[in-house]
Amino acid sequence: MAKFEKKRGKTSPAISTASLPDIIFMLLFFFMTVTVMRNSTLKVDVNIPEATELTKLEKKSLVNFVFIGKPMKQYQAVRGTSPQLQLGDKFSSISEIPVFLEKHRAKVPEKQRSMIISSLKIDSKVTMGIVSDVKDQLRKSEQLKVNYSAKARAGDKYK
């Protein structure tokens, strides 16, 4: 009995940190695989509406984003408060859409070009005028697959 007590008191209980890098690396790899780089900083306010019939966008490389919304506060002095179009990370006019789509298309392998989806992130308060113009321009540039970005609405998928 006495022997045991003596031993316990003497040895310092050092926890081995040798496996710490491994654990961290594991976490690191996890985050590396799930990371999607945000390539565009938003300059317009976009608060997407809610819907129930949602489809997930699978391949990020096949998606291009079109934002429509009111310019954010710091740009309102120059841009006004009416809804604006943002392509990539700058304000654009509707006539710039074909060039924007073509630039994205060039990055995608030829086989997958028919699978490109345009994700429209549009603020719910925007009126349809600018949206229709964008839609027409997309149709003219033969970008027919479109995804109206929306949040899942609470409640059942089928009422």
Binding site: V36, E53, S119, R139, A152
Partner: peptide, 24 residues
């Protein structure tokens, strides 16, 4: 590296109503 990826990660998946526009 971990912190870098933690910061840049966006977990929210892009979802939306998929639509096929008619050709022009």
């Amino acid at each position: 590296l971990l912190i870098f990826f933690l910061v840049t990660t966006t977990m929210d998946q892009d979802k939306g109503v998929l639509v096929r526009l008619p050709p022009w």
